[in-house]
Simulated assay, not measured.
Amino acid sequence: MSAVLFDAPGPRARRRNTLLGVVAAVLVVGVLAFIVWRFAVTGQFSSDKWRVFGFPLVQRSILQALGSTLLAFAYGAVLSLALGLLLAIGRLSARSWLRVTCTVVVELFRAVPLLILMMIVYYGLPPLGVTFITPLIAVVTGLTLYNGAVLAEVFRTGVQSVPRGQREAAEALGMRRGHVLWQILLPQATRAMLPVILAQFVVILKDTALGFIVTYQELLYYAKYLGSNFQYGAPLIPATIVVGTVYIGLCLVLSGASKLVERRLKGTRRTRPGTRVAVSSQHDDADREDAAR
């Protein structure tokens, strides 16, 4: 039986694939070159557009906006994890009323766009008498509700991916359902869930950019403010490039951390070579002793 699921490409197929790859690369390079050319023609690379970023006040403001972005991300990530875990436990509960309630909450907040959640919290609650709503609270609340619902499904599917025999064996030993979940299922499911959770953190970081709608002064809000300032020549595109570069750097850091954790988790699953050698040598010694007898 062949282990290959498809036929190896022949000479014509290889030439066709090479040609398609070259055409795609040329198209991508052409689009990028056109964009750079248009930026150059419209003066986006001129010193007048970029001199604003040499001002110490602007640099400090960018750092403050970066701090606001990271603050919203930190609150959103931690609270989303807590809410997702609670909703997942509720969906796995044996009580039908709790399971149905958590299912409705998860499906509701997964269906509502994040931007609408932020706007409801910031613009909809104050007319109802809730006066303590700030832009940070609106952003963090929206991030928590939406991403918590998404992470709830991650936790639930991760726990259900553990072989059913683990649960049955623990229950046969007399362990309660809650103890089985916390002591048996969750530790094993963490290996499968952790890379997905870290990937969702990247989504949370990028979603903080929606905070400019509710006047939260994060990176995108400051880029919009700086780009509309005619005193500095309205450098909207340069400001967008700078802020976009910062977001790309932050996402690359989180993606790198996710890949590092995934590699380490894969490494812990493998048995050390020395252990295999020791075990095999013990079996060989036992076989020799049996043969001598």
Rank of each mutant, 00 (worst) to 15 (best):
W50P: 11
T101H: 02
A88P: 09
M119I: 10
G211Y: 01
L260D: 03
L194E: 06
E168R: 15
V202W: 00
S46W: 02
T275D: 08
I248R: 10
G30N: 05
R276C: 06
E289M: 13
L79F: 13
G21S: 03
G129R: 03
A33V: 08
R110D: 11
R269A: 10
K224C: 01
R91S: 10
V180T: 15
G142R: 00
E168N: 12
V36S: 05
R263P: 04
W97Y: 10
K259D: 07
L210V: 06
T215K: 07
A152D: 01
L236S: 12
L70W: 00
L27E: 01
V162L: 07
F34I: 04
S258Q: 15
R16V: 11
L92R: 08
L19D: 04
A192H: 08
R110K: 14
P9V: 03
A3I: 03
T245W: 07
Y221E: 00
V214C: 03
E168P: 11
S2E: 04
A223R: 05
L19Q: 12
V41Y: 08
Q166S: 08
T141N: 02
L92G: 14
R16T: 04
P163F: 08
R167P: 00
M119D: 00
L185A: 08
N17P: 00
G274S: 14
L92Q: 05
C102L: 00
E171K: 09
Y123G: 11
R276N: 03
V106L: 11
G148S: 01
A239T: 07
A77T: 06
G178Q: 02
V100P: 00
L87M: 12
T268R: 15
L254Q: 10
P273D: 06
L210N: 02
Y146N: 09
P135M: 06
E218P: 04
I204R: 06
Y232F: 15
V22E: 05
L226M: 13
V112R: 01
I197Y: 07
L32H: 02
P235M: 12
R269N: 05
R264E: 09
F109A: 04
F212W: 14
R164M: 10
V243Y: 05
V261W: 03
L173G: 10
F34L: 06
G174V: 12
V106P: 06
L151I: 09
F6V: 01
A292K: 12
V23I: 15
G211W: 02
L265F: 09
I184V: 15
Y225I: 05
A24M: 07
Y75M: 06
L226V: 14
F230R: 10
V26T: 15
G142Q: 00
T101V: 13
G267N: 12
K266R: 15
I204L: 12
V277L: 15
L27W: 10
G165M: 01
L117M: 02
V52Y: 00
A74V: 09
G165Y: 01
L85Y: 09
M118I: 04
Q59D: 11
V180N: 11
Q160G: 02
Y247H: 05
I116F: 13
V105Q: 03
L125W: 06
V22D: 05
